[in-house]
Amino acid sequence: MAFLRNIWYVAAWDHEVADGRPLARTLLNEPVVMFRSSQGVHALTDRCPHRFAPLHLGKQVGNALQCPYHGLEFDGSGACTRNPHGDGSIPKAAKVKSYPMVEQDSILWIWMGDPEKADPTLIPRFESLDPENWYIGKDYLRARANYQLEVDNIMDLSHIDYLHASTLGNGNGKNAETTVVQDGNTVHSLRLNRNELLSPELERRNGLPPGTPVDRWLDVRWDPPGVMELVVGNAPTGSEDPRKAPGQIRYFQHLFSPETEHTAHYWFATSRRKDLGPEGERIVAEMIVFLRQPFETEDLPMLEAQQRTMGTADFWELRPILLPTDAPGIRARRVLDAMIKAEQK
C-alpha cells in the first residue's frame, strides 16, 4: 500500500527515548533508531553504512551513536564523526539518513518524507497532552493490523456496545445521533447518546449513583494520517444541549502510525487538567490500567482477526457494505486517499 510521506507521524512518547538509551522502531517499513542528546532528539536509519549492523544495538557516546560492530560514531545529522581505525579519516560515504524530529505535547513526531517540507507548524496540537498543565496517563500497544483499521475503530464507536459490552458500552447506543464535520483535512465525528445508562464501572468512575440516566457524547477529532483525540462527556438527561450543561468531561488520545502495511503502533493516553486537583495524577494512572484491558484483549484481537480475513487485499477491493455509523471513518479514508493521490502526482 502507499503511505502518505510528507506529513508528521507519531514515533514515540517523549519518555520512551531517554538520554543514553536508543530506541529502535520500524515506521512505514523503514527501520529507525531514535536517541536523545544535549542537542535534542534525533532519528536515523537503523543501519550502519559500513557492514549494516543495527545502530540501536550500539551505545550512545556523548552526542553520537556508536556502531556496535566496528565503532564508527554518527551524530544526530547522520554524519560520521569518528572512525577509530587507521589514521581516523572518515570516508565520504559514511553517512546515515536522518529524519526531522519535533518534541511537542508529550509526543515525538517524525517526518518520513522530503526534509525540505518538514514544517513543525503542520503538527496537530494536543493541548491536553501538555505536561505543564495536564496530568497524563500514557501507554503503548502494537497491533498486527493495518493502522487504518485502527482509525476506523475509533471513528465508529458504535462497536462499544458489542465488543466492550461489559466495560465501555451498555447496549443503548443504537439510537445515537452522529454528525460528521470536516474542517480542511480534519474530520470530526460527533456522537450523542441520550437517556443512557452507563456500565457499573463507568458509573463508579464518573461518580454517578447506580441507574442514573445521562446524555453522553463521544466526540472524535481525526487528523491525518492517524492521530485522534476523543472527548467524552455526560450530563443529566434532558438538557437541550448536553455539551454545554454541567457534567463530567474526559479526554482520551489515540495515536496510530504504520509499522508495515499490516502492522501498526498504537499509543493511547488520557489526561486531566492539573487545576482540578492533585488527585488527577492518580485518576489518569488508574484509567490507563482500566483502558488497557479492553484495548488489548477486545479491540486488538478483533482488528487482527479483520486483518487476517482481509489478507493482502485492499480495503476498497473487498467492496465493504456501509452503515450510517461508517460515515466518519469513510470520510477520513477518503481524505487520506486524496492526500496520498495528490502527493504521488
Rank of each mutant, 00 (worst) to 15 (best):
R144E: 14
R144Q: 13
I7V: 15
Y135S: 00
S38R: 07
Q253A: 00
D219Y: 14
T263L: 12
V289Y: 11
P54R: 07
I7H: 08
V335I: 10
D275H: 10
E259G: 12
E16Q: 13
A305F: 10
V232A: 13
R221N: 02
I288W: 06
N175G: 15
G113Y: 07
A338Y: 01
G58R: 00
A145Y: 05
Q306A: 09
I123H: 07
A43R: 07
D14V: 04
E298C: 08
G71T: 04
K341L: 05
P278I: 08
T186G: 07
L108F: 01
S106G: 13
R5F: 03
M155W: 10
I154F: 07
L300F: 09
I154Y: 06
A94F: 14
E281R: 07
D75N: 14
A93M: 10
Y69P: 07
R243P: 00
A64S: 14
S166N: 15
R243K: 14
F290G: 02
L230N: 06
A43L: 15
K92N: 14
L190H: 11
D46H: 08
A2G: 06
F290P: 03
R47N: 13
V102R: 03
P22Q: 04
D337I: 06
L218E: 01
D87A: 13
Y162C: 03
R334D: 08
D299P: 05
L129M: 15
L163W: 02
K345E: 15
H164K: 05
D223I: 01
R243E: 11
E261Y: 00
R292F: 08
V61Y: 10
D114F: 12
A145E: 07
D105N: 14
G113D: 13
H56P: 01
L108Q: 03
W217T: 01
G311I: 05
G207L: 03
H70C: 10
A264P: 03
R273H: 12
K174R: 11
L157P: 01
A165N: 12
T186R: 08
F315S: 11
P49I: 08
N206M: 07
L255D: 07
D183C: 15
G20Q: 06
T178N: 09
Y162D: 11
T260N: 08
G211D: 06
V17T: 00
M155G: 05
G211R: 02
E298L: 12
E201P: 05
R51K: 13
K274E: 04
I288K: 04
M302C: 00
Y99F: 11
H56T: 01
A118Q: 09
E343D: 11
R331N: 06
F74K: 03
L122M: 09
S271Y: 05
Q182L: 09
L322D: 04
H262T: 14
W13E: 07
P115Q: 11
A94G: 04
Q293P: 00
W267E: 04
G329C: 08
V41N: 01
C67Q: 03
F252D: 00
Y147P: 00
D119I: 09
P100Y: 11
R25T: 15
A338K: 06
K138V: 00
L65Y: 11
E296S: 08
A64W: 03
P200C: 02
H15T: 06
M1R: 13
N172A: 08
A79V: 12
